[in-house]
Design a binder for these strands. Structure first.
Lengths: 226, 226
DNA sequence: ATTAAAATTTAGACTTATCTAAAAATTTAT
DNA sequence: ATAAATTTTTAGATAAGTCTAAATTTTAAT
């Protein structure tokens, strides 16, 4: 008897979440991702991560060698990209088609990203007009897992007097987004760097014809297109 | 230390599926629903059902007495109705807002019905214009778990010569729906009973100015508003 | 009213995903 | 280069949900 598991192999939600974490951590430059980094990101224990990495390796979704960290196989990368694609498309849906604001969509998208239907994903994609970025400016992988290259630069790297369009926020937590809401800052806004304070790296900016001061911690999360 | 579990009690997907099964079986007239009936509906074993019934009883979602079957508590009924509500709203969404046909939506709705966000459900409800019925004519419970009363009657109970509007199909399986598609029958069609064959209860009907013969098994699933 | 059949429950086992505590390997610091 | 600190893995346990097989209860039939 010959049962070809691979073809009908199902990836569980938990596995998808691990793949997504590895995908995100892998983007941060690292060649291989450490067990501890995954554990921290997923708010779980390193031992649980080890268990899962073995399972993912068995399924050919990651390359894993004891004590050496992991990286995604091509199959794993595509699976992870598909989850990220769904997450970000659903976020756009919630904001553009329903009445959610950008700080309210993350938790719901975390659930919706696991819905298994290629057709549904593509229909939502079409309904939204094939968006390339989610409400936080994060790029949406296409059907083949490819993303458009991002040209935005962090506001801390911009010279005094220069200006750009706010296109991406790195931190998508609702606390940070609510801060931006409160200060009337949104994607698409034209922002000018008025002054950088050397003492604490706080920045005086101009947006919507008003001046304000943002801390270094805030600045670290704002990316502009020049 | 005093931890109030009840308030933050989470209902798992599996529990939701059992509640839904009991909800549907309970509608079929029965006062209490048997273990075997649930097992059959859920395509699982009676022993698994027993295990789950105990758990649901612990959570006050069903009234359960050994060997006596179960019925839903008020809390269980509301939970089940909420799942059914979400299922049917998502079906409407898939058909009305995306390009799915009524025979393609069930499996996706089975996944979407478990998304936990009251706000999302209500936003979808509003987007769709507060529909009262899903694409198969099944009633959609409102926020309080109430459904509009159905006045449709089975086509087998209609006299020769009478006519009505097709408003509900009992069987929502894709085989049956594809049969209706193939024969160009859809909800909203005006159907006239031309003749009933006493031998096998097949019925000659007129729809869209064309005559056709449907078997008793098909007829059992068609409900009209007179 | 017994007995046979059917339905239901119990007991014990398995899988997945998780955890803690201890052991092993790797990295860092002296 | 060796010891100390850190990271990672292993071993063993737990909980949810499922299963099979056996035991029990209920229902149906004579």
């Amino acid at each position: 008897m010959y049962i070809c598991k691979n073809i009908f192999e199902v990836v569980t939600q938990s596995e998808e979440n691990y793949l997504k974490a590895i995908y995100h951590l892998g983007k941060q430059g690292r060649v291989s991702v450490s067990t501890n980094a995954i554990a921290e990101k997923m708010e779980t224990k390193a031992s649980s991560v080890t268990d899962m990495l073995k399972k993912l390796a068995d399924k050919n979704l990651v390359n894993y060698k004891k004590y050496q960290g992991v990286n995604l196989t091509e199959e794993g990368r595509l699976t992870a990209a598909s989850v990220v694609r769904k997450h970000r498309l659903w976020e756009v849906f919630l904001v553009n088609k329903l009445n959610f604001s950008w700080d309210e969509v993350h938790d719901i998208a975390e659930q919706l990203e696991h819905i298994k239907s290629k057709r549904l994903t593509d229909e939502i994609d079409a309904l939204l007009g094939f968006p390339t970025h989610d409400p936080h400016g994060d790029p949406i992988p296409d059907k083949n897992g490819n993303i458009v290259k991002n040209h935005s630069v962090n506001i801390l790297e911009i010279k005094t007097g220069d200006e750009g369009i706010l296109t991406h926020v790195k931190d998508s937590s609702d606390v940070f987004l609510k801060y931006l809401n409160k200060n009337n800052l949104a994607l698409g806004d034209k922002i000018k760097v008025i002054d950088i304070e050397p003492f604490d790296n706080s920045i005086k900016i101009e947006a919507k014809a008003k001046e304000m001061i943002i801390s270094k911690n805030v600045a670290k999360n704002l990316y502009l297109n020049l």
